[in-house]
Computed example of a mutant assay.
Amino acid sequence: MLVDLWPLYALTVTTPRLQLRLPREEEIAALAELAGGGVHRPGERPFMSPWTVGSPADRARTVLRDHWQYLATWDVAEWRLGLGVFREGTPIGLVTLHGWDFPVIRQVSTWSWLGVAHHGQGYGTEARAGLLTLAFDHLGATAALTGAFQDNHASLGVSRKLGYEPDGISVDARDGQAVVSDRLRLTVERWRERPHPPATVGGLDACRALFGL
């Protein structure tokens, strides 16, 4: 069976309203169509990559390509775990956990998107908390990093709600202009001292070697 060859398909993170797991082929197609329908309001630009600027078909194909690339290039030295966010079996978004030299440095970064119809309902906070539960409480991460443009108030609000603290700024070129992002950092100590939505993790034991553990 596929799960025997690629045990990440058995990995699940369950929160009160959501389940995070690696999507199967028909589910990643549904997620791609969801992204094609929009992941932010018109006129916004919350991501450094211009993947949301094109047509609905362009956005959908980007989701497919990224999903396949993450699977094909998985390596202990650097990996990206892209988990579908499901609400009562329906895909509503995608969250990604990125690790590099993880057995040594024990740091991760995260990024995510939700279909625009699912914004403003606390799903982003709950999904990020589930991802961080996996990272801190089960993989042994010591810090999680993230960043957002200074006008991306929704993303920054989720990070601050979960206890991230300022970690400087980044200045990057976007469309020929300099843009500033706030960098944020959450340590395992701060994670454990602050309240966050509960989450349970299943199927990790068979996956540990893939993370270098």
Rank of each mutant, 00 (worst) to 15 (best):
A135V: 01
A135Q: 07
A135Y: 05
A135N: 09
F136S: 03
D137F: 08
H138Y: 13
L139H: 03
G140P: 00
G140F: 05
G140M: 01
A141T: 01
A141P: 01
T142N: 06
T142H: 15
A143K: 04
A143D: 01
A143H: 02
A143R: 10
A144H: 02
A144N: 02
L145K: 07
L145Y: 13
L145N: 04
L145W: 09
T146V: 00
T146Q: 06
T146E: 10
G147E: 10
G147Y: 00
G147V: 01
G147W: 06
A148M: 04
A148N: 01
F149M: 01
Q150W: 12
D151F: 12
D151I: 03
N152T: 03
N152K: 03
N152L: 08
H153A: 14
S155W: 08
S155F: 13
G157Q: 08
V158T: 14
V158C: 05
V158F: 08
V158K: 00
S159F: 00
S159P: 00
S159V: 04
S159K: 02
S159D: 06
S159M: 13
S159W: 09
R160T: 14
K161M: 10
K161V: 09
K161Y: 01
L162H: 06
L162P: 10
Y164E: 03
Y164G: 02
Y164D: 00
Y164H: 14
E165W: 13
E165N: 03
P166A: 10
P166Q: 08
P166R: 04
P166Y: 09
D167S: 12
D167W: 08
D167L: 00
G168C: 05
G168I: 05
I169E: 13
I169M: 03
S170K: 13
S170W: 05
V171K: 09
V171L: 11
V171N: 07
D172L: 15
D172P: 02
D172W: 12
A173L: 15
A173N: 03
G176R: 11
G176E: 07
G176C: 10
Q177H: 12
A178Y: 09
A178V: 07
A178T: 05
V179W: 15
V180S: 04
V180Q: 10
V180I: 15
D182Q: 15
D182K: 05
D182T: 07
D182M: 07
R183D: 01
R183G: 12
R183M: 11
R183I: 03
L184K: 04
R185I: 08
R185D: 02
L186M: 09
L186W: 12
L186K: 08
T187F: 13
T187S: 15
T187E: 05
E189P: 02
E189L: 14
R190Y: 01
R190S: 13
R190D: 12
W191Q: 05
W191A: 07
W191T: 06
W191E: 03
W191S: 02
R192E: 08
R192S: 12
E193T: 15
E193S: 15
E193D: 14
E193Q: 15
E193M: 14
R194P: 09
R194V: 11
P195N: 12
P195F: 13
H196E: 06
H196A: 14
P197W: 12
P198R: 08
P198N: 07
P198D: 06
P198E: 04
A199M: 12
T200P: 07
T200W: 06
V201G: 08
